[in-house]
Simulated scan of single mutants.
Amino acid sequence: MITVQELMTPVGTQVDAGQSLIEVLAMMRRNQHSCAVVKDGDRVVGLIREKDLVAVLARVLESGSVAVGQAADVMTVNPVCVPAAASLLEALKRAQEHRQRQMPVLDEQGMLVGMITHTDMAQAYIHILERQSELVSVNRVLKAESLRDSLLNIGNRRAMEQDLEVLAAHPERRYALALLDLDWFKKYNDYYGHQAGDRALQRVSEAITRHLRQGDTLYRYGGEELLLLMLDTDLEGAWQGANRVREAVQQLGIEHAPSPLGVLTLSAGVASEAGVGVSHLIASADQALYYAKTHGHNSVVRAQVSERGKPPSS
């Protein structure tokens, strides 16, 4: 919390109530101050501002008299003061309430210790707003990063769960899921090493992303397994979309010596059924993926969500 004490400036022009205005004006000009604090001993009794002096000048010009009075004649009596320990917000509210652009600052004993101006408070408030804006931007970036897989630069498991939760709240929205898994990828890592495996995963993720429709989203489900969320599509559309990315991965031609196919490929299981829960759909897609992995690999299998016991279809 920013306090008035942190923002105040020393009082440069202090005058007595009995001093002439000519002396007061001379001191203000010498100190380059726009106001002067009028004191009676240690007590603040008034404030002389530029507009007070302008009012005096206007009276002199109107009357044609050059006689000027004392500080007590033009000062604002008992000006609004602010405690040094007050917060910036408290000081701003007090200044706004009393329409005062300068306020004397008092310590706990009521002694004058400084001055605070509207400009001081406005600049401090602007600084706070700038810092808040920076923090909002940083938090936005951190939140986005917390939902991305750092290796593949796609949504992570947390992002997937959040998005599927939103869909679950709108059962009228049609969508499909595809679970994608790289074929014989453990053998790939054992043969080429994990760094090569990471690079291969990155290339696969980039290739899949390039072949997605607008609105489709790819997530890292776990390890080399990915989940593809396809909005506004049915089972047939999901099968076509998953087949499109399967072909894109195969066409990368990433060498995979331990694979019978010679290149890195993927298998997929797709599921889509209106009114079926997300967890049910994922389980069905996982069953279809298992079927694809045990019946030749490098294929996409449709899940049978409603008809239990019926084998999946390629």
Rank of each mutant, 00 (worst) to 15 (best):
Y221I: 02
A248L: 12
Q195Y: 10
L226F: 02
E273V: 05
T233H: 08
L264D: 01
Q240P: 08
E255P: 14
E273W: 13
G269R: 09
E172Q: 15
N156P: 15
R199I: 07
I154D: 00
L229M: 14
P260Q: 05
Q250T: 06
L235I: 15
M230Q: 02
L264I: 08
L229K: 07
D183R: 00
A200R: 00
L228I: 09
Y191W: 15
I254W: 01
E225L: 03
G155A: 05
A178V: 09
A200L: 05
L218C: 05
G197S: 06
D181L: 07
A257S: 11
G215Q: 12
G253I: 03
E224C: 04
L261I: 03
G237N: 06
A207Y: 02
E172C: 04
G223N: 09
Y192C: 06
A274C: 07
G222L: 02
T209I: 11
W184S: 07
L252A: 02
Q214D: 13
P258C: 03
L252K: 01
L164E: 12
E161D: 15
Y191I: 03
L182E: 01
E225T: 00
A238V: 10
H170P: 07
A196P: 02
W239T: 04
A200N: 08
D198V: 08
R210T: 08
L167S: 05
Q250H: 12
V270T: 06
D216P: 13
V245N: 00
L167E: 15
E206K: 07
G253V: 01
Y221M: 06
A200E: 13
R174F: 04
V204T: 02
D198H: 11
N153C: 05
H211T: 06
A268Q: 09
L227I: 09
A257Q: 15
W239K: 01
G253H: 10
T209R: 15
W239E: 14
L231Y: 05
R246K: 11
E206C: 03
D216A: 05
L228G: 03
A169T: 13
R157P: 11
E172R: 13
I254N: 00
L182M: 15
K186P: 14
A271Q: 00
P260M: 03
R199L: 14
L177R: 06
P171M: 04
P260L: 03
G197K: 03
L264T: 00
H194M: 11
L180A: 00
I208E: 11
T217K: 15
A268K: 01
V270E: 10
L180T: 01
Q214W: 13
R157T: 06
G253T: 03
Q195D: 15
E161N: 13
N189D: 13
A238Y: 12
D183P: 03
N243A: 05
L218I: 09
L177W: 03
Y221A: 02
P260D: 10
G223E: 14
G223K: 09
G155M: 02
G223P: 10
T265F: 00
G253P: 09
L252H: 01
R246I: 01
Q240T: 08
E247I: 14
